[in-house]
């Protein structure tokens, strides 16, 4: 088959078909459009201002590795004036996180960015290995999700950063839109397409890869020969997301724009404004911002420590349910 020339420069041979546009482009033009689109996403959403201290949530996986590389590149190229940090959470999962953290440590040197690693063990006195030993594989993702969110916040305040960026890509967000629709989680459906959120605390979280296709992230990592780690978490066969993911990939094969289309659908839903959050207070056990006497992490920890982990999980789901009912009642 004859080599096709690049649709952008008309010179070099095309090496990639862009899923977003169907264009056939060469390697150099791919690097340029990939980076420029992320830059446009950042500037259109006014994500940063000069002098911001920004932590990159780094797992050692493909998305966060490419994010670290691109954030560093754009910060230098466009003089964002950001102080960048790598922030990693060690969940304490032998054979998974210990290996991926080695990748992050190499990235620290490769990209010359300061790295902070924070472990569940030091924050909570429990590793995921021990939690799973006690409660089994079922429900362990609830612990990990609550713990990670708080750990990232705590790591961010230790680094004194204003902002955490994560590697969530367009495919991830489209999956989440589908999952929220299938679960009827209207409150989350309204929030999940936001490029920037600010939670209970003052630290912003954003997703510069919101419009970036996973295929292009992986191709970028491949052609730039970036060093990343890829293994599934040994405790989380996230079955529900797995189905959404397989479905989305089938849709994408039939129509590549499906991913962006689903994100746009998610954005276009008019979700009634959430009711005012409960008054904020601080957790009586750890001092973290909380809407209850105990923050979510401490509620889970109490259950673990008493050896009745189910209680923590049930309480957590009960709280979620209550919140959801309050929101539903308020909206009707």
């Amino acid at each position: 088959m004859p080599a096709r020339s690049c649709a952008l420069c008309n010179k070099a041979n095309a090496i990639l078909k862009r899923p977003k546009t169907g264009q056939q482009i060469c390697k150099q033009c791919f690097f340029i459009v990939f980076e420029t689109e992320v830059h446009n996403t950042i500037t259109n959403a006014n994500l940063f201002k000069p002098g911001d201290r920004v932590a990159i949530g780094a797992s050692g996986g493909k998305d966060s590795t490419v994010l670290a590389y691109v954030m560093k590149t754009l910060n230098d190229r466009y003089n964002y004036g950001l102080q960048l940090y790598l922030l990693s959470i060690d969940e304490g999962i032998t054979g998974y996180r210990d290996d991926s953290l080695e990748t992050v440590k190499r990235n620290q040197t490769q990209y010359d960015l300061p790295l902070k690693i924070l472990s569940y063990d030091e924050l909570y006195g429990w590793t995921m290995d021990r939690i799973v030993e006690q409660i089994g594989k079922k429900n362990n993702c609830t612990f990990c999700g609550v713990f990670r969110r708080q750990a990232l916040d705590r790591g961010a305040s230790m680094l004194n950063v204003d902002h955490i960026v994560t590697g969530h890509n367009a495919d991830d967000i489209a999956e989440t839109v589908l999952m929220n629709i299938m679960r009827g989680d209207i409150a989350r459906l309204g929030r999940c397409t936001l490029i920037c959120t600010q939670g209970e605390d003052t630290i912003k979280r954003s997703k510069p890869f919101k419009y970036t296709y996973e295929k292009e992230i992986v191709m970028y990592a491949y052609f730039k020969k970036l060093d990343y780690f890829s293994t599934e978490c040994i405790y989380s066969p996230d079955a529900y997301r797995g189905h959404a993911r397989a479905f989305l990939k089938d849709l994408e094969a039939a129509r590549p724009s499906a991913i962006i289309d689903i994100i746009h659908s998610g954005e276009a839903f008019e979700v009634a404004e959430e009711i005012k959050l409960k008054d904020q207070r601080t957790c009586t056990r750890c001092g973290y911002i909380s809407s209850n006497e105990l923050c979510k992490a401490c509620a889970l920890l109490e259950g673990l420590e008493r050896g009745i982990a189910g209680m923590g999980v049930n309480q957590y789901h009960l709280d979620n349910l209550k919140q959801y009912r309050r929101e539903s009642i308020a909206q009707h």
């Binding site: 797992s59 493909k62 890509n169 991830d172 996973e214 992230i217 992986v218 890829s230 293994t231």
Partner: peptide, 10 residues
């Protein structure tokens, strides 16, 4: 021939 999975966590 290079085969790369995009299905693993990021």
């Amino acid at each position: 021939i290079v085969l790369i999975s995009t299905l693993h966590g990021g």
